[in-house]
Design a protein around this nucleic acid. Structure first.
Length: 656
DNA sequence: ATATTAATCCACCGCCATTT
DNA sequence: AAATGGCGGTGGATTAATAT
């Protein structure tokens, strides 16, 4: 035992007294047993710290005989000498070593409340450079990308792949699976081939493996981890089987050994921790990931299991934690928390997450399915369907407009966080708290930055009842002009409530000089107020018998307004369509003049009638004094329109 | 090889309810 | 009125693992 590697102490004096002289053998026995109470690495670090104390004392000319038992004042002076140099925990460790040395010699320890206070002061004055950032976790996608780039036929890579997946899903500390060097001759602390067994069930292929760890950080007598199958490319079971198949391991060698290719003799080499990490980083770093460390696997596995919805106490048990220090590994609370929430019907004002693939309906474009329960509320307009279906769940073109937008704001404004895959392949979560600049940019221009894979949005209480309505007219150019102007006046009126959503549609009339006209929308207030709410609008419109007004539930209103009669459209194929469409947004500040509207309606009534295409124009009520859309500050997102009165959709399609 | 972080255990505190 | 005990939270002490 060299002086540098272990704590030296002399029991001769402390065990003997004047009346009693223990035998050399007994002393030796006590010595050895005491020694085993500390792990080897603790011994060496204590020895080092003790040396540090001696060096300090020598510098201050403190003679050896006044160093032990250390007086309270010397402890204070020693501790305070670290101020501003290192973290308080380092000082604590040095003092712990000192204390352990006192314990072994059965000396009194002179630590005091004063020393505690001094340590607290040290903590506050520690330089920033003394603390290290937490270990980055490996994400599931990172793991899968790593595995895909490993050549599973290669003996070394096969071992690396099996180890990576096992460490991740088994939430292992890497030191529990791999030795620190490949030339350890005898290492009983590392699992061997024989420590990997199939689970008790007889099914083929095996449902799970048990891996016994002969020694873990917190349990020197060993623990067992269960390796469960996965449904994706990171499934540890086939990777372990592949490793065993490629490397033909004898039963007694460390589990993650391999036969080097250009080695003639069937000699196995042990996969070491540095070699394993070097291979992982050689693959991951060029892909743009930060340098990972051994603990990244344990942290990543834990975070992923929690984010997949496994109850935290189960994850805690699987990861072999007995205290709450396990909470430190909850690295992505933004992903974990939604998964851990019990299944529920989202209540107004709560957040929930839906991934792009779970968007089930654009019929009305307002429904998301989250955790199996359909919920009220997102207001994608029918117009957004192409955005929603073909690129990403994030509406960017008009912000996500629907009949409820004037009351609840654009879909854009309900988004709380977005997960996006960037061009470099990394997956980042954005919100007003993290990656706020990206979050700002995505809400208005998401497709310029990446692919949005999941979003979290706020919900609103579904109104108790909804009045949906459709009025149809066939009017003269003059009537159309008056109607459009009345509609504009209605839009600009402060007494038009925000819980009314509607648009005016202009289309081909029944004969030359006439214009077809509809008004369609929904009123979300009490049904008894419906007529008085719409009265200022309809007063100058001609009487019509062609109308449908139905008082219904919110869900039903969405079905009606979506034209499909049902919400789930997964079975409905797209109709091919040859069309030209254009959107205009008109500012609130400069409404259309009578001359403009007149010229427009004249064109629609004359040229519009002889057109050989099917056309219509939607004038969507967007702004107005009460509209929520325009009350949101211009700078809150990159969406550039907060002064729109109407969004005008010009659409025409031909039959071929 | 050494410096530092991570993990665990445990004492203690404030709070409260119950028992003596 | 005093004592006891449970509980959740906090932070100190100790020890092991990991990073450089």
């Amino acid at each position: 035992m060299t002086p540098h590697r272990a704590l030296q102490f002399d029991l001769q004096n402390s065990l003997s007294s004047s009346s009693f002289h223990p035998s050399r053998k007994d002393i030796e026995n006590v010595h050895k047993t005491l020694e085993t109470s500390w792990a080897k690495s603790t011994h060496s670090s204590y020895a080092r710290n003790l040396k540090h104390f001696h060096r300090f004392c020598s510098q201050r000319n403190i003679p050896p005989e006044s160093r032990f038992p250390t007086s309270e004042s010397l402890l204070l002076i020693y501790a305070a000498s670290h101020v501003g140099i290192c973290s308080s925990s380092t000082v604590r460790h040095r003092l712990s070593a000192l204390k352990a040395y006192h314990v072994i010699h059965n000396w009194p320890w002179n630590g005091s409340p004063r020393l505690s206070k001094l340590l607290r002061g040290l903590k506050l004055s520690a330089p920033d450079s003394s603390s290290r950032p937490p270990r980055p976790p490996i994400s599931l996608s990172m793991l899968i990308r790593l595995l895909k780039r490993l050549n599973l036929r290669d003996p070394f890579d096969a071992a690396v792949a099996a180890c990576a997946s096992t460490a991740f899903w088994g939430q292992c500390r890497l030191g529990e699976l791999l030795p620190r060097s490949s030339n350890v001759t005898h290492s009983s602390s590392i699992p061997t081939r024989s420590h990997l067994t199939c689970s008790a069930s007889k099914s083929r292929p095996p449902q799970s493996f048990n891996l016994h760890l002969p020694q873990t950080k917190t349990n020197r007598l060993g623990q067992t981890v269960t390796i469960l199958p996965r449904d994706d490319a990171s499934n540890p079971l086939p990777l372990l089987q592949n490793h065993l198949f490629v490397n033909h391991l004898p039963i007694h060698v460390p589990l993650f050994s391999y036969c080097p290719k250009n080695h003639a003799s069937p000699h196995t080499r042990i996969l070491s921790k540095p070699a394993f990490l070097a291979r992982c980083n050689a693959i991951l770093n060029p892909l743009g990931y930060k340098r990972i460390s051994g603990h990244s696997f344990r942290i990543g596995g834990t975070t992923t299991l929690l984010a997949s919805g496994i109850p935290s106490d189960v994850v805690k048990t699987m990861g072999r934690w007995s205290s709450d220090s396990f909470l430190r590994y909850w690295r992505h609370i933004d992903r974990i928390a939604p998964a851990q929430a019990p299944p529920h019907t989202p209540r107004p004002g709560t957040w929930y997450t839906a991934s792009g693939g779970e968007l089930v309906s654009w019929t009305a474009g307002r429904f998301l399915r989250a955790g199996g329960s359909p919920v009220q509320c997102l207001n994608f307009s029918p117009w957004e369907r192409s955005t929603v279906r073909r690129s990403s769940p994030l509406p960017t073109r008009h912000g996500g407009y629907g009949f409820t937008s004037r009351a609840w704001g654009l879909t854009l404004d309900t988004i709380q966080s977005l997960e996006i895959v960037l061009a470099n392949g990394s997956i980042v979560t954005t919100s007003s708290l993290c990656n706020a600049d990206l979050f700002w940019a995505l809400r208005g221009a998401s497709s310029s930055f990446g692919i949005v894979t999941s979003m979290t949005a706020s919900t609103f209480p579904a109104p108790p009842s909804v009045t949906s309505f459709l009025y149809v007219w066939d009017v003269t150019i003059e009537q159309a002009t008056t109607s459009v102007l009345t509609y504009q006046g209605f839009a600009l009126s402060p007494s038009t409530p925000s819980n009314l959503g509607l648009y005016l549609v202009l289309t081909k009339g029944s004969q030359e000089g006439k214009v077809g006209m509809w008004i369609m929308g929904a009123y979300y207030g009490p049904p008894s107020n419906f007529n008085s709410t719409l009265a200022p609008l309809l007063c100058t419109f001609p009487e019509t018998n062609n109308k449908t007004v139905s008082e219904t539930t919110y869900i039903k209103s969405v079905e009606i307004l979506g034209f499909m009669g049902r919400l789930n459209t997964t079975q409905l194929p797209d109709e091919p369509n040859t069309f030209y469409a254009k959107s205009l947004m008109t500012p609130e500040g400069s409404p259309m003049t009578r001359e403009m509207v007149e010229a427009w309606m004249k064109y629609l009534g004359k040229q519009g009638f002889s057109a050989d295409t099917v056309w219509y124009i939607e004038i969507e009520l967007y702004g107005g004094p009460t509209s929520k859309i325009n009350q949101i500050p211009f700078d809150s997102s990159s969406f550039g329109k907060r002064d729109t009165l109407f969004t005008i959709q010009l659409y025409t399609s031909s039959s071929n």
